[in-house]
């Protein structure tokens, strides 16, 4: 039992509270938003989202907001406070809006 506890804790941590890595399903959604979307660009968006935002606060799961909700937060509320450039905001939004339709779990 004692030996299994760390494994159970790690498994729980792995299942809860992670920010998803983009995959082919997300790329299909992303291409409906930006025709030149690539997996690399989505991965860069995730990296920027984690790097720019997690220094100040716990990250919100992408599914917590719809596309207009994320646009409002990133462009009007956080771009200035977190010093996110236009290009970086675009990449972050492309990632968030591509993965926020994923079913939870």
């Amino acid at each position: 039992m004692t030996r299994r506890l760390p494994i159970a804790v790690l498994a729980l941590a792995g299942c809860v509270g992670t920010i998803p890595h983009p995959d082919e399903r997300d790329l299909v959604v992303a291409r409906s938003l930006a025709h030149d979307a690539t997996l690399d660009r989505l991965a860069e968006g995730r990296r920027l989202y984690v790097g720019k935002c997690s220094s100040c606060h716990a990250l919100h799961a992408p599914r917590e907001r719809d596309d207009p909700g994320w646009r409002k937060v990133v462009e009007t509320e956080m771009a200035g406070r977190a010093r996110i450039s236009r290009d970086e905001a675009d990449r972050i939004l492309l990632y968030l809006c591509a993965v926020n339709d994923r079913p939870s779990g």
Partner: peptide
């Protein structure tokens, strides 16, 4: 020092960029 202008979101997206939804 700021790596980017804080009001950067004011520029409208150019053709081919991630367009508003």
């Amino acid at each position: 020092p700021s790596p980017a202008p804080s009001g950067g979101a004011a520029r409208p997206p150019a053709p081919g960029e991630f367009a508003p939804i």
